[in-house]
Amino acid sequence: METQTKKDLKINGDGSASGGVYEGIKINGSGRITGDVDCEYFKCNGDAKVIGSLTAQSAKINGSASITGSLKADEFKVMGFTKVSENVESKDTKVSGQAELEKNISSDSITVNGELKIKNDCNAEVFTVNGAFTIGGMLNAGEVEIKLYGPCRAKEIGCEKIEVRKGNAFKIHNIITSIFPSFDSKTSLITDSIEGDEIYLENTRAKIVRGNNVEIGPGCDIELVEYKTTYKKSDGAAVKEEKKV
């Protein structure tokens, strides 16, 4: 019998199901879904594997999940660990644990309070990080706000506005580095180039920084700064060459 209403899929314990169109999918325990899935909400409180692509209004992962296809969601929340093998498209992305994306991500807003790893490019209007990230390609964002609590890496960064500040968790450590300003590569941003309109950096190592208004704060190690309008450099920063263009 075929009905028009969409069904819920619940896996409590250990189970597997095939893909398809569902109203909601909830996995409490360990679940395996084979095939593409289209649903209103996807929630995993345990361990889930989707062998295929996932399309959902909301996808929340509180345990561990891996998706071998692509992910399309309005809301994508990771509280545990998630791995996605293909592209991710989302409106609101929050990573409070760890997410590993093997291709690109494009999301209106991305908030990271943990660690985000992206193999290729990352596109976002607002990119906020309190933690660590690795982007193998380009970070292209409207607004970038980074509080460094771990290693942050990107091949290149292009944006309208970027603000990178040291996280303020380790007070004693801060005092020591304020007396002996040296580059601390563990909680730092390392990238080849940063290009944007408004730039403020701390603890950043980059080959090139280009922008309209550039301020290089303490703990930075920059080879070349090119600025259009204003430029400021704090005492604890090392800049090899600076040019007004």
């Binding site: 409207g142 309208e160 506005k161």
Partner: peptide
């Protein structure tokens, strides 16, 4: 400005394959 250029790229106003990387003395 850089910001505008990157915004247009994000919005797909400028195709990805128009961005041609070439090595130069400053890297790429």
């Amino acid at each position: 400005s850089y910001g505008q250029l990157y915004r247009w790229k994000r919005k797909n106003l400028i195709p990805e394959d128009w961005f041609i990387k070439k090595s130069s003395f400053t890297g790429q």
